[in-house]
Structure formats: structure tokens, C-alpha cells
């Protein structure tokens, strides 16, 4: 039911972990649906994603999309990263089963939340300074 690419990212994810001094953190999903994704980003001076990690509770699709989105945006600018959607993540994995497109395909949303969190912290820093 899952593509080879999904299984590869699910079985051997490369971006599992946390960044203790992350510049932005985003969480998406809820336990009722059975999927929770959390993404941590480090942003460099040129507004590029210098490091990215994830922690996910969920099914094969939830874990694979989390890992995929990390791979897709590492080294990209925040603007480029914001172009990535749940749909493009699913595409990059050679598609997901139809029943997974909804609940388990939220990794891009979690990433966008992490970026929003980063921007909010910038504002706080600037206004605070």
C-alpha cells in the first residue's frame, strides 16, 4: 500500500531528533487522530534552514512525510521552504494512499508553524531590543 520511497523514509529516517537551541519549533496534529508531528529548525544569517529535525508519533505516512519535508528544505531559504505544501511532500514520496492524504500528511504544516515561530521570535527580539 505504501510506495518504496515511503517505506525507505519510514524505516530509515535521517532527521529524527530535537534541536535544543532551535530557532523555531512547530507542532501539528492531535492525539485523537493518532498523529503528532513536531519540527525543529535552526536558521542562519542568510535566512536559510541550516539544521532541521523532527519528532513524530504516528503511522508510516506521518513518519515518512516528516522525514521527507526535512530533506526537502534543508539548506533552503525560508521563502523557498514556505512554497512546500503537504501535497508536494506527498508527491516527492511518489504519492500516499488516499486515506492518508488527510490526517497523516501534515508535515509541511508543522514546518510552516516552525517558520512562523521563528519569525515571531525575531519580532520579539527586535521590539524587545
Amino acid at each position: 500500500m505504501y510506495s518504496e520511497k515511503v517505506m525507505e523514509h519510514f524505516m530509515n529516517p535521517r532527521f529524527v531528533g530535537e534541536i535544543s537551541d532551535a530557532d523555531g519549533v512547530g507542532t501539528e496534529g492531535n492525539p485523537v487522530c493518532g498523529d503528532i508531528m513536531r519540527i525543529f529548525i535552526k536558521v542562519d544569517a542568510e535566512n536559510r534552514i541550516a539544521d532541521i529535525k523532527f519528532k513524530t508519533f504516528g503511522c508510516g505516512a506521518a513518519i515518512a512525510t516528516s522525514d521527507m519535508v526535512c530533506e526537502m528544505v534543508l539548506g533552503k531559504t525560508l521563502d523557498e521552504a514556505l512554497q512546500i505544501t503537504n501535497a508536494t511532500v506527498a508527491q516527492a514520496l511518489d504519492g500516499l494512499p488516499p486515506n492518508k492524504l488527510h490526517c497523516s500528511n501534515l508535515a509541511a504544516d508543522a514546518l510552516h508553524k516552525a517558520i512562523a515561530d521563528f519569525k515571531e521570535r525575531q519580532v520579539t527580539l527586535e521590539t524587545g531590543a
Binding site: Y2, M7, F10, M11, V32, C33, G34, D35, F57, G58, C59, G60, A61, A62, I63, N99, K100, H102, C103, S104
Partner: peptide
């Protein structure tokens, strides 16, 4: 702290067939 379908997929890779009451394996969202 773990989700059923992820368990089943990993067990399947090791040749073990099992089942779960997780949403993902029931075909519904609950």
C-alpha cells in the same frame, strides 16, 4: 507513546503478522 500502524509495518519487515486498533489500520479516522 507509539502508534499501532508503525508497529505493524516494522513487525511485517521482520516477518511477523499482527493487528492494531489504531485509526490507520481500521480504515477510518478514529
Amino acid at each position: 507513546y507509539v502508534e499501532g500502524e508503525s508497529l505493524l509495518l516494522n513487525l511485517d519487515m521482520q516477518g511477523i503478522a499482527a493487528s492494531s486498533g489504531s485509526a490507520c489500520t481500521s480504515g477510518s479516522l478514529a
